[in-house]
Amino acid sequence: MSATDTKRGRVPVLRSSAVLHAVMAVGGLIMVLFLIAHMYGNLKVFAGQEAFDGYSAYLRTILEPLLPYAGALWILRVILLISVGAHIWAAFVLWHRSRAATAGGGGWRYQTTQNRRGVQRSYASFTMRWGGVTIALFVVYHLLHLTGNVIHPGGASDSAYERMVNGFSIWWVVLSYVIALIALGFHLRHGIWSAFASLGANTSIAVRRRLNGLAYVVTFVIIVGFLVPPLSILIGWVGA
């Protein structure tokens, strides 16, 4: 084996895995910010239909008349769309590279059936990819339901408040929502801390602990914040 005889052309650094992970991290963190804002909006449901629908309408009038109707919302939507697109694109490229690097076997590439779970990997960390796919499918369904008013379990309505109440009065709608939130929870638990790590913020063992703590707290707040409105609707606290 000569060290010089098989030298290969290098991959340009902008397409390197390290940079793609940074792209994923930035996209992911933007989505986390969005989730927090979205969760805050959801909680308006407790203030009644008027406040909720009013908030919904307000979002479309931010910075009017500087911007046209729904202009600011569309800017936010475009940023979000770019984040989602970049996040998913990077994820698939990296997924493909991992498979290529391990001859398709990933963490299960050894013949042995012993220690298949490795030593210290968390459930969250090695379900990032399929968890991400689950979340992506849910988001499509979710947009068709509550944003686009295309599918409308429990009855269609022009009022976002009514669509929400109608939908979450049905047990299986809530269940699908809860399953998606569990997937999201795992995704955030590992995603938030590893996003910071991918951006170079994990500088010591102490900092790693803090980043992991932050991931737990943010995940907990987001999941609880998203769970409270549909569960409240289901048990009849809201909208009845």
């Binding site: 290098r10 960390s125 590893s194 994990n202």
Partner: peptide
């Protein structure tokens, strides 16, 4: 070094810690 790492066919890091 990162360029060469990728050119050799190693995968990226998802901070799993194994």
């Amino acid at each position: 070094m990162v360029e060469q790492h990728d050119a050799e066919g190693f995968g990226g890091c998802t901070q799993i810690g194994e």
